[in-house]
């Protein structure tokens, strides 16, 4: 599978993150989105006329929406991540996948504006993002009352992976996460998953590693 990828794109990171969590190897093809605008070049438009990334190709199949790519990877390699245990769980996953698009269009656009100088009405974008973050906070706090740490139940699904990047990176767009304690705990639960990988703007959960003791003499000598 080839992923047309951009290191700073939260939507591409969705795909890289799920692949890492389920152990799926992807061939990454770096697209010079910024500053090169390569996603709008003829070869890329031939692949995806919408001019967006990520794009995933696999043996003739071309997928251009990150949530669809998540669905494909999970169905292909790790169906439990689809969250299809019950009718309700399946619908909740679908609901959060749609919600993830609202995050892209609000928090994601605010970040692109503040960081990469993309055009946009920043006050309106932050207003929409705040509304979305408040909805997420309310839903996650309701989940906590039922002993659920994730969006569609007590285990992570593609819904969590779809929503996580733009939420975790919201401060990049001038949207502090200070007011959202349940979001903070949910992000922590995702960052603590086996196989979790970061993207720039999301730090390693250093608490998972023990405090290093005194350095062995042999290493110390090598470094000197």
């Amino acid at each position: 599978m080839i992923l047309y990828d951009y290191i700073l794109s939260p939507s591409c990171y969705r795909v890289r993150l799920l692949a890492a969590l389920i152990g799926r190897r992807l061939d990454l093809w770096a697209v010079d989105v910024h500053p090169g605008q390569e996603h709008l070049s003829e070869p890329m438009l031939a692949l995806n006329p919408a001019g967006t990334i990520p794009v995933l190709t696999d043996d003739g199949l071309v997928l251009t929406e990150s949530t669809a790519i998540l669905t494909y990877l999970a169905a292909h390699d790790a169906p439990a991540w689809l969250g299809e245990d019950t009718a309700a769980m399946r619908a909740r996953v679908a609901q959060w996948l749609a919600f993830a698009q609202r995050l892209t269009d609000s928090a994601g656009a605010a970040r692109a504006h503040d960081m990469l100088l993309a055009p946009g009405d920043i006050d309106a974008l932050r207003g929409q993002a705040t509304q979305a973050l408040r909805e997420l906070e309310a839903a996650l706090s309701a989940g906590r009352r039922r002993g659920e740490s994730f969006l569609a139940g007590n285990r992570p699904t593609i819904a969590d992976i779809a929503c996580f990047p733009h939420v975790a990176l919201a401060p990049d767009g001038g949207l502090p996460l200070d007011p959202y304690p349940s979001i903070r705990l949910w992000m922590r639960a995702i960052r603590a998953l086996d196989g979790f990988i970061e993207m720039p703007g999301i730090h390693r959960l250093h608490e998972l590693k023990p405090e290093p003791g005194p350095m062995p003499e042999v290493i110390r000598k090598e470094q000197a």
């Binding site: 730090h203 959960l205 250093h206 608490e207 590693k209 023990p210 405090e211």
Partner: peptide, 18 residues
């Protein structure tokens, strides 16, 4: 507050000062 907790210490995310 961006830092990390190991044991009984809070460490800064920037340079790891504990």
């Amino acid at each position: 507050s961006h830092g990390f907790v190991r044991g009984e210490r809070l460490s800064c995310i920037y340079h790891g000062w504990g």
